[in-house]
């Protein structure tokens, strides 16, 4: 935490260090909003060598294996501009993401620049939790999962189906298109049970998505 704070401070203070950093970044902190369907994003960080000497970029290090930084060439003459491209592959990530890319140069005494990439990946339907479980012998009370559609984008739940009749699931509509509850109540908790609960939606219209939730007696 302290390290990250330190990195942020360095990033903030860097432009104020006179005569040191020769690379001037146009937009070192960038923010985006995407959906999981976008699968990834490319961010471009342009810079210009405002110093009097050529600068060589000696290293690019991303905070996450999911983010790949790329550079056309390494050495930039005074006045020359360049671009660091960061490709962030979402995988199955959701919610706010914060990745950083550390750029080191051959400039003496200049600390690495930290480029900042923030992406909010919003799912049309957020589900919490996606797992309900009981320990064996625990009272078999009903447990619930909340399904919430993103504001302004109604998602209707057509049906919920449980793969295991001993873990039946019930759909409760709190507000159609906006908020639902899936409630699971085990027949009993005497033995181990494995169940998958399929949530059939109407979104997107051309290829409606099915979400899979998990229920277990452990």
């Amino acid at each position: 935490m302290h390290f990250r704070l330190f990195v942020c401070l360095v990033a903030l203070l860097l432009p104020t260090v006179p005569g040191r950093a020769q690379l001037k970044w146009d937009n070192p902190a960038q923010q985006f909003q995407r959906t999981p369907a976008d699968e990834g994003i490319e961010a471009f960080y342009t810079f210009r060598n405002v110093g009097k000497l050529p600068v060589t970029i000696t290293g690019l290090r991303a905070s996450c294996g999911c983010t790949t930084p790329h550079l056309e060439k390494k050495t930039y003459a005074p006045g020359e501009t360049g671009t660091v491209t960061a490709r962030f592959v979402f995988g199955d990530r959701k919610g706010p993401q914060h990745k950083t890319i550390e750029v080191s140069t051959d400039e003496e005494g200049a600390p690495p620049v930290v480029l900042d990439l923030r992406v909010l990946i919003h799912d049309p339907l957020s589900i919490e939790p996606t797992l309900v479980y009981w320990k064996r012998g625990e009272p078999g009370e009903a447990k619930t999962m909340q399904l919430t559609a993103e504001a302004g984008q109604p998602v209707r739940i057509k049906n919920v189906i449980s793969s295991n009749p001993r873990l039946p699931a019930k759909l409760v509509t709190v507000k159609a298109g906006e908020s639902y509850v899936v409630s699971v109540k085990p027949a009993d908790t005497a033995q181990k049970e494995v169940g998958e609960i399929f949530v059939l939606t109407d979104f997107p219209a051309d290829a409606p998505r099915t979400y899979i939730l998990q229920a277990r007696v452990k």
């Binding site: 294996g65 999911c66 592959v89 995988g91 199955d92 990530r93 996606t130 797992l131 479980y133 320990k135 494995v194 998958e196 899979i212 998990q214 277990r216 452990k218």
Partner: peptide, 19 residues
């Protein structure tokens, strides 16, 4: 269990997980 393949890994993870 990583975020790259969360949706595919989460089921086997839950199956193996001992509460």
């Amino acid at each position: 269990l990583n975020e790259d393949e969360w949706d595919t890994l989460v089921k086997p993870f839950i199956d193996e997980w001992d509460s």
